[in-house]
């Protein structure tokens, strides 16, 4: 333990080759439905995602980084993901992240998870275990997961709406204090989960993200995989 901030920058870099660039985090469906049309509605969207799916993901990641059994966390992630399209996406991205993580920070724990879930574990669990392999702590893992929860949609909306990228980045900057707060909540829950198991983790959910993920998965023409 005890890696500095640099490893976190590597892990949270949007160019970390783990497949995230092809996913919009529900933003493509929200744009099509007219719920995201500009920087303000993008901010509302990202805030909602951050405090729901983002918090749940951050808590799973923090718990994995804290040493909670990744397979139990993977089951907990399944129970927190009612949409089959989102479960498939989470496992696909988890598998892609496993590949990148094993190259970047080889670890027996990542190998064991890959062996136990050859089709991919849920991405936040892999992210947390990757943070652990990189010598990062639960709060770092939570930060990375929470940031991903908003950076993915923000980047996607730049491509989908032609939104000014400076505006999109300003949205992320405005959300930064809330992101810190979510990460701290997630890390706190992860500390409890070490003793109480995954039930101690939040299971926050966003109805529209779940519902529209199923719709998006059925579209014949789309820019993003999810």
């Amino acid at each position: 333990m005890g890696a500095g901030h640099a490893a976190l920058l590597v892990l949270a870099d949007g160019r970390f080759p783990a497949g995230g660039h092809a996913h919009s985090g529900g933003a493509e469906a929200a744009v099509k439905a007219g719920r995201v049309t500009d920087a303000a509605s993008l901010e509302d969207f990202c805030r909602g995602r951050l405090h729901t799916a983002g918090l749940s993901a951050a808590a799973l990641a923090a718990a994995a980084a804290a040493g909670v059994d990744p397979l139990a966390l993977d089951d907990a992630a399944d129970a927190r993901t009612p949409s089959p399209a989102l479960r498939a996406t989470a496992r696909r991205l988890g598998r892609q992240m496993t590949r990148a993580a094993r190259a970047a920070w080889p670890s027996p724990e990542l190998d064991a998870l890959a062996a136990a879930r050859p089709r991919g574990a849920h991405q936040p669990v892999v992210l947390g275990l990757t943070a652990r392999a990189a010598g990062l702590g639960p709060l770092d893992a939570a930060h990375a997961a929470a940031y991903e929860a908003v950076s993915g949609p923000a980047t996607a909306v730049v491509r989908l709406l032609g939104l000014d990228p400076f505006d999109a980045t300003a949205v992320l900057a405005r959300l930064a204090p809330e992101l810190d707060h979510v990460a701290e909540r997630a890390a706190e829950a992860a500390r409890r989960a070490v003793h109480e198991g995954p039930d101690a983790l939040p299971a926050c959910s966003a109805p529209l993200l779940d519902i529209t993920a199923e719709q998006h998965a059925a579209w014949p023409v789309r820019l993003f995989a999810s």
């Binding site: 160019r15 080759p17 783990a18 497949g19 995230g20 660039h21 892609q96 990148a100």
Partner: peptide, 9 residues
């Protein structure tokens, strides 16, 4: 090129 993970899968 930059993120080949999906293609490798």
């Amino acid at each position: 090129r930059d993120d080949i993970s999906a293609n490798l899968e």
